[in-house]
Computed example of a mutant assay.
Amino acid sequence: MSAPIIEAIETRILDVPLIRPHGFATFTANEQPILLVQVKLSDGSTGFGEGVVPGGAWWGGETVETMQVIVEKYLAPATIGRKASEISGIVHDWERHVANMRFAKAGLEIALFDAYARSLNIPLADLLGGKFRDSLDCTWALGVLPLEQAVAEVEERIASHGHQSFKLKMGSGDPATDVTRIAELVDALEGRVSFRIDINARWDRLTSLRFLPVLAEAGVELFEQPTPADDLDTLREITQRIGVPVMADESVCSPADALAVVKKQAADVVA
């Protein structure tokens, strides 16, 4: 039986309220914008995908508004009319029409997979090779919070959802003050859970080499992108010297970026 044809692609921007303000290194978010992508097939099946970046253009250059234009004006015309089973070929052909724009492409690609799985009447996991596990441990992001509020939220998430790993944002304030805040929080939980930090590429080399060892001594277990995205030499130095796993995030926006980090041995983990 021939696969159904991709007949229509629609997008809609959703501003999803957050349960509390979420502080990043650059600003505080009260909602999470999402580009909802909908793919309709000739057999009546409909699939959904999401294009999401954390808060806006400051992270990687894309926003839900830019994603919407790229999907509707450039990716959709290169997709509509093709078979739902041609996903790999479709995604490959997008590169001839649009450079980069990974999050816009991801939102549409997810919707294509979802639609095709629904047309086959199988779980998407089966289409991708089968389910591997029934549950997944998740790290809960605390953002930038005062000590008392952070402790209360950690306790609440442990009780309600069993979280054992928490991420804290840094980089928006004075480094010494930030480090004291994080160290006090880690100490307050007395080893019951693990903590990691995300500096969103806001520290320079000297700040990182001065304060990251203090955080390591306090018990922080992972450092996410302390230094600017394009400075892999400094990221490598931190990775080699500090003794705590380092994650590259802003430094990796494409497969080529990931390969550069690996070749440079600039990080232990890639987001």
Rank of each mutant, 00 (worst) to 15 (best):
W140A: 08
G49K: 00
D249I: 00
S165N: 15
R12V: 03
T139C: 15
M1N: 03
D134C: 01
S88P: 03
K167L: 11
L147H: 10
S85G: 00
F24D: 04
V269T: 01
L222H: 08
F103K: 04
F132A: 05
V91T: 00
G23H: 08
E31Q: 14
V179P: 03
L124Q: 03
L112M: 09
T139D: 06
F166A: 08
G129S: 04
E62S: 03
K83T: 12
K40A: 10
L215H: 01
L185Y: 01
R236N: 05
A260T: 06
G51R: 00
A266H: 06
E62M: 09
R118D: 10
T234P: 04
D15G: 00
T234Y: 02
T177S: 14
P213C: 06
P54R: 01
P228W: 11
T227A: 13
A266L: 13
T66V: 02
G243P: 00
A141Y: 14
A25P: 04
S254F: 07
V16M: 09
F27H: 12
E156L: 11
S160W: 02
L168G: 02
D174W: 12
V193M: 03
L259Q: 07
T239L: 06
N121P: 00
V154R: 01
A117Q: 11
D187P: 02
L75R: 07
L232T: 09
D198W: 01
A115H: 08
V270L: 10
S165A: 10
S251I: 01
A248S: 07
M247R: 05
I182M: 14
L18S: 00
S119D: 07
Y74T: 02
A256K: 09
V53K: 10
T11K: 03
D204P: 02
A29C: 00
K131P: 08
V91I: 15
I13N: 13
L168C: 11
A25K: 06
I19S: 15
